[in-house]
Design a protein around this nucleic acid. Sequence first.
DNA 1: GTTGTGACATCGC
DNA 2: CGCGATGCCACAA
Length: 141
Amino acid sequence: MPYSNPPEPRQYADRVCEIVRAIPSGRVMSYGQLARLIPPPVGVEPDSYLRLSPRWVGAAMANAPDDVPWQRVINSQGKISSRPGFGVVVQRKLLEQEGVVFDARERVDLSRYGWQPEAAWLRERGLLAWEDDTPRQATLF
DNA sequence: GTTGTGACATCGC
DNA sequence: CGCGATGCCACAA
């Protein structure tokens, strides 16, 4: 499994955190969804980017500053991804305090709690907001 | 130099 | 719908 890092990990993480900070309380985004808003760094092929970037987002969350609502990032199945030394219990509790409801299978209904930034907000920051959701070569990292 | 192991998504059964 | 395989890397100890 490709666990490579982005060309400029810090810069990439900053972009990720900027988006996560914008997620409203009580809403969630998936790692992949988040990644697809950020254009592939120069030198990274779009298909490689699709394959690798969700992990990069995860890595960014692992080292996120305290002001980043990391609990609002979950996986594409609507479930909390467990990490070593930090059970899913804490994250679930934080989300429930924000009003997020989990079903019997520990899943969140993404069609209900999923969130996506406004197109204008994304444009201002050089992020992607195309309908086809295809990552493009667009940024200078 | 080796080894272990990561906050994922997608596709085929 | 669930489960397993795939991707084939970087970095700390």
